[in-house]
C-alpha cells in the first residue's frame, strides 16, 4: 500500500503556510511570514487576514511544486479549523473547502493546539520520538498549556494560563525594558550575559497545574519603579541582569508546573512545542531533567512555531482514523479542545 499524501494548510495567526506530507515524511513546508507585523509591534488581525489572502495561493502552489507532486496525488486536504484569529482562520478554511470541492478530495479539520503536539511524529522532527502516554508543554505567544497525550487522538488539557501566555509575558516584560518587538528572543540574548539571581520577582500562588504571569509583570513593574528612584539609568545599566532574572522567573514558573504534572501523573516522558521552546534556558532546564530519568523531546524549531507540516501530520492521523468534514464546516476562533 502506498503512503498517504496529505496537503496541510495553516493560517491561524500571522504566517500563511502549506506543507506536503508523505507517510511521516515532510516533502515541503512553505511559510510566508508577514513582516508587516514587526512594523506595527504585533499581529494585527485585519492585516493578518489581508496578507493571508495574498499569500495562500502562491504558498500552496510552492508547497506542491517543492514536493514534486500534483494536486491529483493528494489523498486529503487538512486545514486549521481553530483556535486562532477568526479573520485569518477563515481564509485558510475557505481555501481548503474550495480546493476540496474542486478536486473532490476529502477534507480534514485540524485543531491547531493538537497539531503542535503531533508535530513530534514527523520523521525528522527529533531524534527521539515520544512514547505514549506523554506530557506536552505547549508554550507560545498565544498559549501556555500542559496536555496529557494518551494516543494521537486522545488528549487532555491538564493546565492552562489564567492570564498571559508565556510568550506574551516575555514580550511584555521586554516592552517594560524598552526593548523592541518581538522582545522574547532579545531577553534570551541579553540574559546570557546577566546574573539570573540579581533580582527576585514574586512567584504565582496558583493551585493545580494552571499558570499565571500577571503577578510577575506587576513585580517587575515595582522593581523597576523602586530602582529607578535610586538610579535613573537603572534599566539601561542593569539590562542583562534584569533579562536574566526575568527569564529565570518565567522558565521557573513553567518548570514548576511541568514537574508537578510529572509527579501527579507518573508520566516522565515530556515534550515541548510552540515558539517559546526556542528559549535557551527552557531547553537547558528540560535537558537537565534527563539526568533525573525524564525522557525529553524537543522538536526541530521549524516544527515548533506555527507551520503547516504539523497540520499535515495531525491531518494524517485523523484521516487514517476516518475523520472527514463536509462543506458546512467553518473556522472557529475558540475551537473547543
Amino acid at each position: 500500500m502506498k503512503d498517504t499524501i496529505i496537503l496541510g494548510i495553516e493560517s491561524s495567526c500571522d504566517d500563511t503556510s502549506a506543507a506536503v506530507l508523505r507517510g511521516s515524511e515532510i516533502l515541503s513546508n512553505i511559510i510566508a511570514g508577514q513582516a508587516v507585523h514587526e512594523l506595527f509591534g504585533g499581529v494585527v488581525p485585519e492585516l493578518a487576514s489581508r496578507a493571508h489572502q495574498e499569500n495562500i495561493v502562491p504558498v500552496v502552489s510552492a508547497a506542491l511544486k517543492e514536493a514534486g507532486i500534483g494536486l491529483e496525488d493528494v489523498d486529503a486536504i487538512a486545514f486549521t479549523q481553530g483556535p486562532g484569529l477568526l479573520g485569518s482562520l477563515t481564509i485558510g478554511a475557505s481555501f481548503a473547502k474550495a480546493l476540496a470541492l474542486a478536486t473532490n478530495k476529502p477534507l480534514v479539520p485540524v485543531h491547531h493546539m493538537k497539531a503542535h503536539i503531533l508535530a513530534h511524529f514527523i520523521d525528522d522532527a527529533s531524534e527521539m520520538k515520544p512514547t505514549f502516554p506523554f506530557l506536552c508543554l505547549t508554550v507560545s505567544g498565544g498559549h501556555t498549556q500542559i496536555v496529557r497525550v494518551d494516543n494521537p487522538l486522545q488528549m487532555e488539557v491538564l493546565g492552562n494560563t489564567i492570564d498571559d501566555a508565556a510568550g506574551e509575558a516575555f514580550d511584555k516584560a521586554a516592552k517594560m525594558l524598552d526593548l523592541p518587538y518581538p522582545g522574547g528572543p532579545l531577553i534570551d540574548k541579553y540574559a546570557q550575559l546577566g546574573n539570573a539571581q540579581a533580582f527576585q520577582f514574586s512567584k504565582p500562588r496558583i493551585e493545580g497545574l494552571n499558570f499565571s504571569f500577571s503577578g510577575l509583570k506587576t513585580s517587575i513593574l515595582y522593581t523597576i519603579r523602586d530602582q529607578v528612584k535610586l538610579d535613573e539609568q537603572f534599566k539601561e545599566t542593569h539590562l542583562n541582569d534584569l533579562c536574566a532574572s526575568i527569564q529565570n522567573s518565567i522558565v521557573s514558573i513553567l518548570m514548576d508546573k511541568i514537574e508537578k504534572a510529572v509527579q501527579e501523573t507518573g508520566i516522565n516522558c515530556v515534550v515541548i512545542a510552540g515558539g517559546v521552546s526556542a528559549n535557551s534556558e527552557l531547553r537547558k532546564r528540560l535537558q537537565a531533567k534527563m539526568e533525573h530519568g525524564w525522557k525529553v523531546s524537543i522538536p526541530k524549531f521549524s516544527y515548533c512555531t506555527d507551520n503547516a507540516a504539523m497540520i499535515a501530520m495531525a491531518g494524517k492521523f485523523l484521516f487514517e482514523s476516518g475523520v472527514r468534514a463536509d462543506q458546512s464546516i467553518s473556522a472557529q476562533a475558540r475551537l473547543a479542545w
Partner: peptide, 8 residues
C-alpha cells in the same frame, strides 16, 4: 478567559 492581548 485569560488576557485578550492575542485575540484582541
Amino acid at each position: 478567559d485569560g488576557s485578550p492581548t492575542y485575540a484582541i
